[in-house]
Design a protein around this nucleic acid. Structure first.
Lengths: 107, 107
DNA sequence: ACAGATATATCGCTCGCCGATATATCGACG
DNA sequence: CGTCGATATATCGGCGAGCGATATATCTGT
C-alpha cells in the first residue's frame, strides 16, 4: 500500500472546505489560487469527488436558497470530515518525513 | 493535472536504483527497509513498473549470468533515468513547498 | 435579447496499483 | 536424494483516481 497523499484531490478539497462553506466552482478556483497555480482540479474530477465525500458523510451539501438563486450548491465539512482531515494532516506529515528520509539516505 | 508525487512507485524504484544496480526482489525489500516499513510495493506493481521503465529507457535490465545462476535480472539506471530522477526530485521539493503553503494558509 | 462567464453534472477512457496466481530455482535439512 | 520454504520473475483481472468532452441551466453586462 502506498497512498501518496491519501487520494490527494479529496485532501485538497477538504483543506479548502476547512476555511468555511464553499460551492463547487469556488473550491476549484481556491485550489488553483491557494497553490499559486501549482495544483488544479478539473470539473470532471471535482463533482464526482464532492459526491463521494457527501456519500461518505465527510461533507454536507445544500442548495443555496438564501436569496432567490437556485443554481449553487454549498458544501461544508461535517464533524466527521473535520476529524478525518486532522488525521490526514498527520498522515501527510508522516509521509513527508518518510519520503525525506528515503531520499536523504544514500546520497 | 495533479501528479502528487509523479507516479510515486516509479519514483521510489528509481530512488533505490540511484544507489546502484539491483534486481527486482531486492528493490521491493529496499523500499520497505529504507522507509522503515512506511512504503511498500507489491510484486503485482513492481514488475510492470520495471518493464515500463525499461521500455522508456530509464532503466536497463540484464539477466545475471556472472556466476552460473540464471534466475535474477539486474536493473540499473540509465543516464536518461538518472537525469529524469534529478528533475523529479526538484519537482518533488516544489510540490512539498506548494503543499505546505496550501496547508499553512488559513489555519 | 444575446453573449459570455458562472455553475453543476455525467460519461467513457486511461493509467496506477493491487491481489491472486503461475512458474522456476536455490539452499537447508533429514 | 528428495522435498520444502524462501527467493525470484511474471501476467491477469479488477478497482478506483482523475481527466477531457460534452450537456445543460442561469446569471450579468451591454
Amino acid at each position: 500500500m502506498f497512498e501518496p497523499i491519501k487520494t490527494s484531490t479529496y485532501f485538497l478539497v477538504m483543506l479548502v472546505l476547512r476555511d468555511g462553506p464553499r460551492h463547487g466552482y469556488e473550491i476549484a478556483a481556491s485550489i488553483k489560487d491557494r497553490s499559486q497555480g501549482y495544483f488544479s482540479i478539473s470539473f470532471g474530477s471535482l463533482y464526482p469527488v464532492l459526491h463521494k465525500l457527501e456519500k461518505d458523510s465527510l461533507v454536507e451539501a445544500q442548495w443555496q436558497e438564501a436569496g432567490d438563486v437556485k443554481s449553487k450548491k454549498v458544501y461544508k465539512l461535517t464533524d466527521k470530515g473535520s476529524r478525518q482531515l486532522t488525521a490526514e494532516l498527520e498522515q501527510f506529515n508522516a509521509m513527508i518525513t518518510a519520503f525525506k528520509g528515503f531520499i536523504g539516505e544514500g546520497v
